[in-house]
Design a protein around this nucleic acid. Structure first.
Length: 225
DNA sequence: AATTGCTACAACCGCAAGTCC
DNA sequence: TGGACTTGCGGTTGTAGCAAT
């Protein structure tokens, strides 16, 4: 069979418009289908990512507020690298965005914070793991801070870092995750919004594509289900 | 002005979970 | 029940833009 060539790399404005149109038409679930019918030479996966991280109308763009930053630090110390979960507590922010922000801005801060809190002994905050059990996962250069040397907990093929916060039992994703979340709500959405409003009047900037193609706006992420 | 190093962020990849038949 | 397919998540990479030298 002749494999249709798959486009990779940065999305063009035209591709964005096309994707938005088809998502508006069919909803944001059947990505393989959308990828096919839209004529975009992208994988469903790629379409989903583009939508979720860039085109979704509910996205808040622009700099993280100090409150959001604080929240990320807080939640990361509690949950580790569970970005999607952290993202759920920050309306308008994506897991990818938070993950990137963490790597570039906060890792150092968290590091300092941790160092300030822990004695220079070999015992981590959890009091269990010594550096000898740490695994270096640095894949890139020299300046990878020791965050990468956090103890790695393995569960069912997934891993996350012990950040020194409460080690939660690693509930499987999906339904169970939701249950866990329901039962442990730390911040209500109201709290978060209130706080954000108070801390800074950060403007919600919708994705540029929506200015470009305003007709396609859908109401609050609820598309044909 | 050219080069190098760093930062920020978009996008890709692999894997596991979820869903459908 | 199990296999194929789809979706979601977290880790990683590529690169544009900027600052420092």
């Amino acid at each position: 069979m002749v494999q249709e060539e798959i486009r990779k790399g940065p999305w063009t404005e035209h591709e964005d418009v096309q994707l938005v149109f088809y998502v508006n038409l069919f909803g944001d679930r059947r990505w393989d289908f959308i990828a096919k019918v839209s004529g975009l030479k992208r994988t469903g996966k790629s379409c989903r990512l583009r939508w979720v991280n860039y085109l979704h109308p509910g996205l808040k763009r622009g700099k993280m507020t100090t409150h959001e930053e604080r929240l990320v630090l807080e939640l990361h110390s509690k949950w580790g690298n569970r970005w999607s979960r952290i993202a759920r507590k920050l309306p308008g922010r994506t897991d990818n965005e938070i993950k990137n922000y963490w790597r570039t801005h906060l890792r150092k801060k968290a590091q300092e914070r941790k160092q300030a809190m822990s004695p220079p002994s070999s015992i981590s905050n959890s009091g269990v793991l010594a550096p000898s059990s740490w695994i270096s996962r640095s894949s890139t250069s020299s300046n990878n801070p020791p965050m990468d040397l956090m103890p790695v907990m393995e569960t069912k093929g997934r891993s996350f870092y012990d950040t020194g916060g409460d080690l939660e039992i690693f509930a499987p994703k999906g339904k169970k995750d939701k249950e866990v979340e329901e039962s442990e709500k730390v911040y209500s959405m109201d709290d978060i919004w209130k706080d954000i409003d108070l801390s800074e009047n950060c403007q919600t900037i919708t994705s540029p594509i929506w200015n470009y193609c305003p007709d396609l706006l859908v109401d609050d992420g609820r598309r044909g289900e």
